[in-house]
């Protein structure tokens, strides 16, 4: 009985932030000590009908950046990680990949920012994509390195001896068998990019307004209702993904999914 109650309490407390942010995003004026905002209306949400509104644009800027980064990392990481996984120096490569993965992205941004400035990439859409790619790519490699194994390699070789060309083997053996790994990598990298703030703000130098950048901007403007709205938009795609398939929400190294 206690266990049940605890569990329900836990589930409710997990859902609470979602509801709280939603209510706050509908609010106007919230003076202390009122528990709820004094006015609740859809006024803040009207941005949905205005394609020139900041939030509307931020949502699509974020979406564009995250999709690009996720596609590039998933595709390039797949090919490159395969050679690394079967290389004799696999472990050296793995440790090298862990360095940028473990460093705080914003610190990475600090140390390579100079090169973005001299190439004119700061403050551009492309610059932010490249910077996020550099941070997310090692993570993609780490995901894939957990995936390539001796069994898969044997199947690939078997396909060759059965007469399969390199392309046929990719199409008929490797890609179908890698579907889950590819999806995992895609969604994980998408989320990393979607959640990123420090590096995006530094390399985008405030000009590339993604949703996370918007949250911080609204917070500094003391506009908590818009900030709450931006926050709510930020958690929508991951919640949608959770609804579709929860396995892609997180990557657990070395344990079966």
């Amino acid at each position: 009985m206690i266990k049940r109650t605890l569990q329900y309490g836990f589930i409710i407390s997990i859902g609470f932030p979602v509801v709280f942010l939603l209510v706050l995003s509908l609010g106007r004026r919230w003076a202390y000590p009122n528990i709820l905002p004094e006015q609740i209306s859809f006024a803040n949400w009207e941005f949905l009908q205005q394609s020139d509104s900041k939030l509307f644009q931020a949502f699509f800027v974020s979406l564009g950046i995250s999709l690009c980064v996720a596609v590039f990392v998933t595709a390039l990481g797949f090919v490159i990680s395969k050679f690394i996984a079967y290389s004799q120096r696999r472990n050296t490569f793995l440790v090298l990949a862990y360095i940028p993965y473990l460093l705080s992205p914003v610190i990475m941004a600090i140390i390579f920012q100079y090169y973005f400035i001299i190439t004119g990439l700061t403050g551009t859409f492309l610059g932010v994509i490249i910077a996020q790619f550099l941070v997310a790519f090692p993570f993609g490699i780490i995901i894939y390195l957990n995936f390539w194994n001796a069994q898969l390699k044997s199947m690939e070789e078997l396909s060759y001896t059965l007469g399969g060309s390199r392309w046929q083997t990719y199409k008929k053996v490797l890609l179908p068998l890698s579907k889950n790994a590819l999806m995992l990598c895609f969604f994980q990298v998408f989320l990393i990019s979607w959640f990123e703030y420090g590096l995006t703000n530094l390399i985008g130098s405030g000009k590339i307004r993604t949703l996370t950048v918007s949250v911080f901007n609204f917070v500094t403007e003391a506009n908590i209702f818009y900030a709450a709205l931006a926050c709510f938009l930020l958690i929508l795609p991951p919640m949608l993904l959770l609804y579709i398939n929860k396995r892609f929400i997180l990557f657990v190294e070395k344990t079966e999914l």
Partner: peptide, 20 residues
Amino acid sequence: ALSTAIYLPLCFPGTVMAFF
């Protein structure tokens, strides 16, 4: 329900959780 609910906090980026 719990097996899905436990994944929900993973939908929150640091930014959002900090704001909340």
